[in-house]
């Protein structure tokens, strides 16, 4: 465990807690894409299949449980909570996220480290995580205005992946044989997807204006 990875995991944890806090306290999910949340729940479900078979550390198991519980409860809140669901704007959140799931699964069948069910599901979860933010970014473009909790949520998600890239660089130089192109490339693609959002986020923060994304 290195500082970049720990900071990345804490930032990732903060992003889901910010989101849960927002939904739980103001009982609203305005501006949040349910599709992205469903994709993240699927990412964790397919990545943590080894939760009960391979024990790595208490930290690892604990964090996996937190991510699984939080992502599924966010989906539950938006879909079933009697007050929250009313603030879900399904007419705007129209990204056909099933078009993301299939290509990621097919790609995982073709490009993977081992052709086993667990490995293919794990690789699928990496590819899916790289594109899972797209429905959310599309929704933000559409609704144009971003309330600061949603902006912070997306910012923290991007920061977590950027920190993981530093973690991979660190591990590449400190651990022999630590080479994982699939993890690195999908992580890089994911971070690049945030790049333009980061740009506008910092612009609004620097000029102290409300965050506006160009149409």
């Amino acid at each position: 465990m290195n500082i970049f990875r720990l900071a990345g995991d804490m930032t990732h944890l903060a992003s889901v807690l910010v989101l849960l806090l927002k939904i739980h306290t103001i009982k609203s999910c305005a501006g949040i894409s349910l599709k992205t949340q469903e994709l993240y729940a699927l990412v964790f479900a397919t990545r943590y299949l080894d939760l009960f078979t391979d024990y790595i550390s208490l930290y690892n198991t604990l964090m996996k449980l937190i991510f699984l519980v939080s992502s599924f409860s966010i989906v539950w809140y938006i879909r079933h909570h009697k007050i929250v669901r009313r603030s879900y704007d399904k007419d705007q959140d129209t990204f056909r996220h099933y078009f993301l799931v299939l290509p990621c699964f097919l790609l995982a069948l073709v490009i993977n480290e081992k052709f086993t069910v667990k490995e293919i599901m794990w690789t699928f979860s990496l590819y899916l995580e790289a594109v899972a933010i797209l429905p959310q970014l599309v929704l933000l473009q559409r609704t144009r205005n971003i309330d600061n909790l949603t902006g912070q949520y997306v910012f923290l998600l991007g920061a977590y992946r950027s920190l993981y890239i530093l973690n991979w660089i660190y591990r590449y130089f400190t651990e022999p044989h630590y080479v994982h192109w699939i993890t690195w490339i999908s992580g890089l693609v994911q971070t690049l997807l945030y790049a333009d959002f980061f740009y506008y986020y910092f612009q609004s923060w620097k000029n102290n204006v409300k965050l506006e994304l160009p149409a």
């Binding site: 080894d50 550390s57 480290e113 081992k114 794990w122 973690n167 044989h177 630590y178 994982h180 993890t183």
Partner: peptide, 10 residues
């Protein structure tokens, strides 16, 4: 073997 080292990440 080494490939598992990517699995110790979240």
């Amino acid at each position: 073997e080494y490939s598992n080292s990517a699995k110790d990440e979240l």
